[in-house]
């Protein structure tokens, strides 16, 4: 079998493009509705490039949470890129600067597509798929953030329920076994129990403690 290339990465990503664009447009619209204006969501997509974390920080701040809570929620969600980065590290060759740039294109989807089994990753496929995703993510965010205002009051449109729906859609594919489901339920329980007493955003960060279940094996 010939070694896969940059083009193979781009091609493998193509079927996901519509979904990614839709996801990016909804981020732009929801960020705009949460008071982010039009420029900040675009800058965030270009610099952070991690969908679920961006949604989380926007929803925490939009609900009146503090900057610290919004940042903590996003970074906790992105902690998974620590181990993911370590898994691809042996395959990212070149200067530290090249490795740094390649690392930015690692997101769940590009990482999955670049996997070649037995812990091997193809750096060119990762680069092709990641770059394609990046362009779609930033362009879609721009469309959503700029046109978002035309949509009117987010509450009448039910956009507030869109956040919960989106997180449910992100949770289901990663809830692979019972431990994941228990962690999700425990996280939900902690967050709801703390909501009446703690400032907005804090219950979400506190709920991350549910992951300590992972210590039990």
């Amino acid at each position: 079998m010939a070694e896969r290339t940059f083009r193979d990465g781009v091609r493998a990503m193509a079927p996901l493009l519509v979904a990614v664009l839709g996801f990016a447009i909804s981020f732009g619209v929801l960020a705009r509705a949460a008071g982010f204006g039009w420029l900040a969501p675009i800058v965030m997509s270009a610099t952070t490039f991690a969908g679920s974390a961006q949604f989380a920080s926007v929803s925490v701040l939009g609900d009146g949470g503090t900057v610290a809570a919004a940042v903590a929620a996003a970074l906790l969600l992105n902690l998974r890129y620590g181990p993911i980065g370590i898994s691809v590290a042996p395959w990212l060759t070149g200067s530290p600067w090249t490795r740094f740039l390649h690392a930015q294109l690692v997101v769940d989807e590009s990482w999955a597509i670049a996997a070649e089994g037995e812990g091997k990753f193809n750096r060119r496929v990762l680069f092709g798929a990641g770059l394609m995703l990046y362009v779609a993510w930033v362009a879609g965010t721009a469309v959503g953030a700029i046109l978002g205002r035309a949509l009117g009051d987010p509450a009448t449109l039910g956009l507030d329920a869109a956040f919960a729906a989106l997180f449910l859609g992100l949770l289901v594919p990663i809830a692979k076994d019972r431990r994941h489901v228990v962690a999700a339920l425990l996280g939900a329980g902690i967050a709801l129990a703390l909501t009446p007493f703690a400032p907005a955003g804090v219950p979400i960060v506190a709920a991350s403690a549910a992951c300590l279940l992972g210590l039990r094996r």
Binding site: S52, L171, A175, A184, L186, A207, S208, A210
Partner: peptide, 11 residues
């Protein structure tokens, strides 16, 4: 388990 816990809380 971090991501499922946070998604559960956000939902």
């Amino acid at each position: 388990l971090l991501a499922p816990a946070l998604f559960g809380a956000l939902i």
